[in-house]
């Protein structure tokens, strides 16, 4: 918000009596520096989108979502000492329906990717994702694993990647603050079709594997198909 200030008033034109009366009427504790900057006018002039983005970026509810090692550092980020709440994003919500931001703290494996996609889908728009740690970037140290998804970006869109194994709490704080900046500027990762999507079993292309599984899986059951040969 540094380059483009939306709230500029011309001090010389301020009708000071009005301002003073407002101030005295409210008592001292309502007088913030922002209040003084606004002067007498209780109104500001800005674009609605800009204002809303500023609000969004300044108060983010995080999804309480622990996966692996990184979630330990994530807990430390929320707790004393690092205290993510200082930056306006420290309210962990247990339900995805109440959350704005999902921090993905760990390795995504084949059994979990459909569940993560489901949790992501349950979050209301607009929603943002911070990928925490190397596993969410590429699979990290487990990239060679037969069961590991090579990065969370294969499944859901990610706004900010925080590298590290695990990233220090300071790094996560930096990542979240960067995300807030992006949100306030109205930027978000594009929602595109991902390599691995949840789809109904009957919609899959009929190949050898699908034929083999027809007895085990119902037609309308949701499945995720992994093409490990093509993953990065």
């Amino acid at each position: 918000m540094s380059s483009d200030q939306p709230f500029i008033t011309d001090e010389s034109r301020v009708v000071t009596e009005t301002r003073d009366s407002r101030m005295t009427g409210q008592g001292d504790r309502f007088n913030s520096r922002l209040r003084e900057a606004f002067g007498s006018s209780p109104f500001i002039l800005t674009k609605f989108d800009k204002f809303l983005n500023w609000c969004r970026g300044s108060s983010m509810f995080m999804l309480q979502f622990g996966i692996a090692c990184c979630s330990i550092e994530m807990m430390h980020t929320y707790a004393v000492k690092h205290d993510l709440d200082r930056f306006g994003s420290g309210v962990p919500r247990a339900s995805p329906r109440q959350a704005d931001v999902m921090i993905v703290p760990g390795t995504i494996v084949s059994k979990f990717a459909p569940r993560m996609k489901r949790v992501y889908d349950q979050m209301p728009e607009p929603k943002f994702v911070v990928g925490m740690g190397s596993c969410t970037i590429s699979g990290g140290p487990f990239q060679e694993g037969y069961n590991v998804i090579k990065g969370a970006e294969e499944v859901i869109p990610i706004d900010i990647h925080v590298p590290g194994c695990p990233p220090r709490p300071e790094a996560l704080v930096y990542g979240v603050v960067k995300l807030q900046e992006r949100v306030a500027n109205g930027e978000a990762a594009p929602v595109t079709v991902k390599p691995y999507e949840l789809e109904e079993f009957s919609d899959l292309e009929k190949d050898e594997l699908v034929e083999k599984l027809t007895d085990q899986i119902d037609e309308d059951e949701l499945v995720m198909r992994y093409n490990f040969a093509d993953s990065p």
Partner: peptide
């Protein structure tokens, strides 16, 4: 899942399907 991944001759590039 298809195959047993720590057995000899397991092809880790084969496609797999996980259900929800």
């Amino acid at each position: 899942w298809q195959g047993h991944p720590l057995s000899i001759g397991y092809d880790k590039d084969r496609p797999q399907i996980a259900t929800l």
